[in-house]
């Protein structure tokens, strides 16, 4: 298999079309298994009761939101370095899912915070960083939306994402620092005492499900973007006629 072959829009379109069902079904299966483990297999936490089970959504969502940002940065770096248009499309296709996971992480964090801290929102280091990450996602998508010319949009977005990627670790560090200065110690979601092995497995299975879901959705979106970009080419015209 030649990788360069699949960097051509038409070949990518076909390949993505064949792969999507696999990833989608994989995501569904893992999500079902993960939810089963998290609701029925994982033991009740003696300190936090049943409420802690939200971490099976919260933690994978938080992981994914950060990870997707890094993947976007990777694609943007490739795109800027080798001028491959498909890379920019991948970044564009991933961003909404990244923002979605960010939002999910914040939402589930709030749901978990109510019973734990007695408030929907606490300026915990993790939640605050997640909030700023959401701001970054929003900024990038707003920039894309504002630029009509696809080429300029691709590159401008890529530059912003890369600057953000350099900045994200600094933001995390600074927020953590700020948090320890202003809040002292707070209960941390990840430091749940004696995390049972089943909990960890549950989280990992859910993370894999989130992964597969992300790939499937990103491919669907990328296919749409490829069609829109290449709408004047013969192969797209042919697809339109056939449809």
């Amino acid at each position: 298999m030649n990788l360069y072959h699949y960097a051509a829009p038409a070949a990518f379109y076909g390949l993505a079309g064949r792969l999507i069902p696999w990833f989608a079904w994989g995501a569904a299966l893992f999500a079902a298994a993960g939810l089963y483990i998290s609701f029925f297999v994982a033991p009740t936490d003696f300190q936090q009761g049943e409420a802690y089970r939200i971490i099976f959504i919260h933690v994978p969502a938080a992981w994914m939101s950060m990870f997707i940002y890094m993947v976007m940065a990777f694609w943007c770096a490739i795109g800027l370095a080798f001028n491959t248009r498909l890379s920019f499309l991948m970044a564009r296709a991933l961003a909404p899912t990244g923002a979605l996971f960010c939002f999910l992480a914040l939402w589930t964090g709030a749901l978990w915070g109510k019973p734990m801290w007695g408030a929907w929102w606490v300026w915990d280091a993790r939640l605050t960083s997640e909030l700023i990450l959401l701001f970054l996602y929003v900024g990038i998508m707003a920039l894309w939306a504002a630029i009509d010319d696809p080429k300029r949009g691709d590159r401008a977005g890529a530059l912003l994402i890369l600057v953000g990627a350099i900045n994200v670790p600094i933001i995390y560090f600074s927020v953590k620092w700020w948090n320890t200065l202003h809040q002292g110690s707070s209960i941390n979601l990840m430091q749940a005492p004696s995390m049972a092995a089943t909990m960890l497995i549950g989280m990992l299975v859910m993370a894999i499900a989130a992964w597969l879901y992300t790939i499937a959705v990103a491919l669907v979106r990328a296919r749409g973007l490829v069609l829109a970009r290449e709408r004047h080419t013969e192969w797209v015209q042919k697809i339109i006629k056939e449809a």
Partner: peptide, 9 residues
Amino acid sequence: LLILPLYVP
């Protein structure tokens, strides 16, 4: 929108 998050540190 773009720059404020980068100012955080």
